[in-house]
Design a protein around this nucleic acid. Structure first.
Lengths: 355, 355
DNA sequence: TTGAAAGCGCTACCAC
DNA sequence: GTGGTAGCGCTTTCAA
């Protein structure tokens, strides 16, 4: 690949002139401009963004660090991010942590050292050890050449108050879900399959679950809260286990849809009627919710909007160039999407989106 | 973020020495090494990979260019790619073309100009116009600082014979699927919902479909081949349309699972028995195939292995440093996964993978 | 074993 | 309008 020097030689002009043409400066005569453009075309030259970045400290790259792109939830988020990025000249750089905090730390460091212009992060830094805390601390102080690299977290606010976030109110969502199960569906013994207990989001949902029970005069018992691990397999086994133990319940609220699908599968095998005997509710409203039979009532999380909002906010932060005076947390609304797993005979509109 | 100069000053040594420590050269005295390491730690220094790349022309970044990460098919591929990359020191850089050839061309150029060490590409360059051909031509000649940037394509071999690929035999897969529908399921009027006709993979599958019919003494008619667009919506509408027109058919073979899910939905609404009246078969075996009811018979494509093989091969190409004498096309095997949409009463083992 | 200095490809500043 | 040149942060000779 030719470099700027080659182009200059080929066109018979100085490097400066070539640079001016590339960067669209007006102070270059039409004749020279034409010659340079021809040389660029002849040599199939394209400017080396590494070297450019080294000088200008602007790479036009934005890193998106997620736990896993195959987690359906994040696919939608990515669509939103991409949509906003496309309109500007930014490229997106996706990497995956697979829920490993070590990998997350390594990736953030690596992105910073590559001088990305910003980082959109779905963190799994739940721990409270020294190393994790130091890492979280560092998130608001990432720099390249002395200038600030903004970080925006997804899903929940990171514990560093210097980092902005785009979130949904997990507690409120869970509250409304359980309140709905009690008041609209008429259930009384609601089991909650949660996320790993250490996860902030899981804790929030448990809090919402509890509040809904108590406000409706029902008893909160720890027996009814099961620790899940995101997978549909755990929903499946936990449910079979509940039934085997003869634990009484007439509804299950799961912290994500994958687990709820596992619950449905187990109930179907055990020939337990949904929703008459047991109603099931998920969270996130991924497309699988509308595909399973019975279709799954879930809480719709605006994933696309979440990604778009994160990117939009990121662009603002980059434009401003320095940490905002006051932290900004953008909260998006969720809503319940009612389907057959809580209400018999409801018409299930299969979503015809790309997946 | 501190730079190497700062570290050198802090440690009271030369830049060269710091560089030696960073790059693990042995020719540095233990005492100095300790001082430098302390300085690095104190300043929280991490080496700027941009500048490093500028000099060494090795960035340790590998670009993965896909149509869309939310297309379930590619999620699995990414897992495989990541698994292999993790073992080495490479970072993965994912971007999406959304089936736009312009975007694809732009991305490849941009990656090359960022001096990635290699590009794994799921191309949508089906066109035959001048620009596309020139682009495909260029794929085997990507360079940074005069050294070759290897490209490996996924899913199908690109028409440039200088580009290696990891693929499955689409024609053979389709052949086996249709042969199975005829001989095992006993169907005779098989409709094929294809990909957009211009797509190489779609053409291959149609060829396999045709061959299976003919080898089994059935007539191939163009009426039975419908052009699809990947979405479940098109499977849905095409099926309703067939039925409305009174087109006779007793099986549908779809070029992907999404379309097959749409077919199932339409048949269910029309109260047509699956598989007795109409058997349905998909392609790819994404997890949705095991979730729908009736569950969907499909062709399992080893996505994970595909990604892993592509990455493995990429690392070899990078190690060798120059184009191989002979093009290598790695072909992986597919297999039929039998479920309820072609065989009543078969036990459906829901896959408990992460999705 | 150590340090000085050239140079990777580019931009930006300063002269002319 | 144009060209010369310093320098971004790093690696890599070459000398000492």
């Amino acid at each position: 690949m030719a470099n700027i020097k080659d182009v200059a030689r080929q066109a018979g002009v100085s490097i400066s002139t070539v640079s001016r043409v590339i960067n669209d400066s007006k102070s270059v005569s039409p004749s020279l401009r034409v010659m340079v453009e021809k040389a660029i075309d002849d040599l199939n030259y394209s400017t080396n963004s590494i070297a450019r970045g080294l000088k200008s400290s602007q790479t036009n790259n934005i890193a998106v660090i997620l736990t896993s792109v195959s987690r359906t939830f994040f696919s939608g988020v990515l669509e939103g991010i991409n949509k906003e990025a496309d309109q500007e000249k930014y490229s997106i750089f996706i990497s995956e942590t697979h829920d490993s905090i070590e990998r997350e730390i390594k990736l953030v460091r690596s992105c910073a050292s590559q001088w990305v212009d910003g980082i959109i992060l779905a963190s799994s830094a739940y721990g409270n050890d020294m190393k994790t805390r130091k890492y979280i601390e560092s998130l608001s102080k990432l720099e390249k050449k002395g200038s600030w690299i903004p970080v925006v977290t997804l899903e929940y606010p990171c514990s560093n108050p210097g980092v902005d976030a785009v979130v949904v109110d997990h507690k409120k969502s869970a509250f409304r879900a359980v309140d709905y199960l009690i008041r609209e569906v008429g259930k009384k013994s609601i089991v909650h399959i949660s996320l790993p207990f250490e996860h902030y989001m899981g804790q929030q949902r448990i809090a919402g679950y509890r509040e809904a029970l108590e406000q409706n005069g029902l008893l909160f018992t720890e027996d009814n809260v099961l620790e899940g691990d995101y997978t549909s397999y755990c929903g499946y086994t936990l449910t079979r286990d509940l039934v085997r133990r003869g634990h009484p319940f007439d509804a299950v609220f799961c912290a994500n849809d994958q687990m709820a699908v596992g619950v449905l599968q187990a109930l179907s095998e055990l020939e337990i009627q949904v929703p008459e005997q047991v109603a099931v509710m998920g969270n996130d409203d991924i497309f699988a919710a509308s595909i399973v039979k019975p279709s799954l009532t879930s809480i719709h999380v605006p994933r696309f909007e979440m990604g778009a909002a994160a990117m939009k906010h990121m662009l603002e932060l980059i434009r401003e160039g320095e940490p905002p005076v006051k932290r900004k947390i953008i909260t998006l609304d969720t809503e319940i999407v009612e389907r057959e797993s809580t209400k018999r005979g409801i018409k299930n509109s299969l979503k015809y989106l790309d997946w």
